[in-house]
Simulated scan of single mutants.
Amino acid sequence: MNATQGPVPAEYEPIAGPPGRIELTSAQLHGRACVVCGSERDSLTAAGHAYTCTGDGGRLGWPVKACARHVRRLDGGETAA
C-alpha cells in the first residue's frame, strides 16, 4: 500500500464482538490511527486485527488499534458515541 492509495477493504476482527467488513487507510492498518474514527491524536490501544487480501487470494493480518473513546466499545464495554 502506498501513501496515495485510498482506503482498502478489510475484514475486521475486534477483540470482542462480531467481525465485519470495513475500509481502512494506511495509517489505520499500520496502527497509527484509530480503526473506528481514524483519529491520530489520542493514545491508541490494541483493538484486534484487520485482514486484507493478498494478490494470490491469501489473507494478510494487521494488528489494529483504537482510541480511548472507541476501545471500550470494541472490547465489550460501554458503547461510545
Rank of each mutant, 00 (worst) to 15 (best):
V35G: 01
G48Y: 06
S43R: 15
S39C: 14
A47V: 08
G77L: 14
P19E: 08
A10H: 04
Q28M: 12
R32S: 09
Q5Y: 03
D75I: 06
Q28A: 03
R59M: 14
G61F: 00
R41L: 13
R72E: 07
E13M: 04
E13S: 15
I15R: 07
A10K: 02
L74I: 07
L29F: 03
G76A: 09
L44N: 06
G48F: 04
Q5F: 05
T52A: 11
R21E: 13
P63W: 00
H49K: 10
R41M: 07
T52D: 06
C67F: 08
E40A: 11
V36G: 01
A66V: 07
R72S: 14
M1K: 11
M1Q: 12
V36L: 02
V8Q: 15
D56Y: 02
R72G: 09
A3G: 07
I15K: 06
R72H: 15
T45E: 11
Y51A: 09
T25S: 15
E40R: 12
P18A: 10
T4R: 12
V8C: 05
C37T: 04
S43C: 03
L60S: 04
A3D: 14
T45M: 14
E11Q: 11
A46T: 10
E40H: 10
R32H: 14
R72W: 14
G77E: 07
P9R: 04
G76H: 13
H30Y: 03
A50P: 05
E78W: 03
C67T: 08
R69A: 14
R69E: 12
G20K: 11
Y12G: 05
H70S: 09
P19H: 07
S26F: 06
R69P: 00
V8N: 01
H30F: 02
R59P: 00
D75H: 13
E78N: 07
I22N: 00
T25L: 06
V8E: 03
R41W: 02
V8S: 11
S26A: 13
S26R: 14
H30S: 10
A81I: 09
G31Y: 03
L60E: 14
R59E: 13
A16D: 06
R59Y: 04
A27E: 15
H49I: 02
D56S: 09
H49W: 08
A47P: 00
V35F: 00
V36R: 05
G76Y: 11
G20S: 14
C53I: 00
Q28G: 04
A47R: 05
L24A: 13
Y12W: 08
H49D: 09
A33Q: 06
T4M: 10
S43L: 13
E11S: 07
G61W: 02
I22S: 00
H70Y: 03
L24N: 02
A46W: 11
T79E: 15
K65T: 09
S26Y: 13
R69Q: 12
T79Q: 11
Y51L: 11
G77A: 11
Y12Q: 09
P14A: 09
R69M: 10
G58D: 15
S39K: 04
G57A: 08
P7D: 15
A10P: 12
T79S: 10
D75F: 10
R32G: 01
N2T: 13
S39P: 12
V64L: 01
A66I: 06
I22D: 01
G77F: 05
M1C: 04
A33L: 07
C37S: 09
A68G: 07
A10E: 01
K65Q: 12
A81M: 02
R73A: 12
V8M: 11
